[in-house]
Simulated assay, not measured.
Amino acid sequence: MQTKEAPFTLRLWTVKEYQKMAELGIFHPEERVELIAGQIVKMSAKGTVHTTTVRRIANVLRDKLQGQVDVHTQDPVQLNDFSEPEPDIAVVKLDPLDYVDHHPTASEVYLIIEVADSSFKYDCETKGKAYAKSGILDYWVLDVNNRKLHVFREPTQEKYQSEVIFSQEAIISPLNFPNLMITIADILPPKQ
Rank of each mutant, 00 (worst) to 15 (best):
Q2N: 15
T3Q: 10
T3F: 06
K4A: 13
E5V: 06
F8L: 13
F8D: 10
L12R: 11
W13L: 01
E17N: 06
Y18M: 10
Q19N: 13
Q19G: 00
M21D: 06
M21R: 09
M21Y: 12
A22M: 05
A22H: 08
I26E: 14
H28D: 15
H28A: 15
H28L: 15
P29T: 11
V33S: 04
E34G: 04
L35A: 05
I36F: 00
A37S: 07
G38K: 00
I40T: 11
V41Y: 10
M43C: 04
A45F: 13
T48E: 10
H50C: 06
T51I: 10
T53V: 00
T53K: 05
R56P: 05
I57E: 08
I57H: 09
N59W: 04
R62P: 01
K64M: 11
L65A: 10
Q68H: 14
V69E: 09
D70L: 15
D70H: 13
D70C: 13
H72V: 01
T73R: 12
Q74W: 14
Q74T: 13
D75R: 15
D75E: 12
V77M: 06
V77L: 07
L79M: 08
L79K: 05
N80I: 12
N80P: 11
D81L: 07
F82L: 08
F82R: 02
F82I: 08
S83N: 04
E84A: 14
P85Y: 10
D88K: 04
I89H: 03
A90P: 00
V91G: 03
V92E: 09
K93M: 09
K93D: 04
Y99D: 03
Y99S: 02
V100G: 03
H102W: 00
A106L: 10
A106Q: 08
S107A: 09
V109K: 03
V109A: 05
Y110R: 02
V115P: 12
S118M: 06
S119H: 13
F120L: 15
C124F: 08
C124G: 03
T126K: 11
T126G: 01
K129T: 03
A130K: 03
A130N: 08
Y131M: 06
A132D: 03
K133S: 11
S134I: 01
S134M: 04
S134C: 07
L137A: 10
L137P: 00
D138L: 00
V141W: 04
V141I: 13
V144T: 15
N145L: 12
N146P: 02
N146Q: 13
K148N: 00
L149W: 03
V151W: 05
F152D: 01
R153T: 02
R153V: 02
E154I: 04
E154H: 06
T156V: 01
Q157G: 07
Q157W: 00
K159W: 03
K159Y: 09
Q161V: 01
S162I: 08
E163I: 09
V164R: 14
F166Q: 05
F166H: 14
Q168L: 14
E169N: 15
A170M: 07
A170Y: 11
I171D: 14
I171Q: 14
I172D: 05
S173W: 10
F177Y: 06
P178L: 03
L180G: 01
I182Y: 10
A185M: 07
A185G: 04
D186G: 04
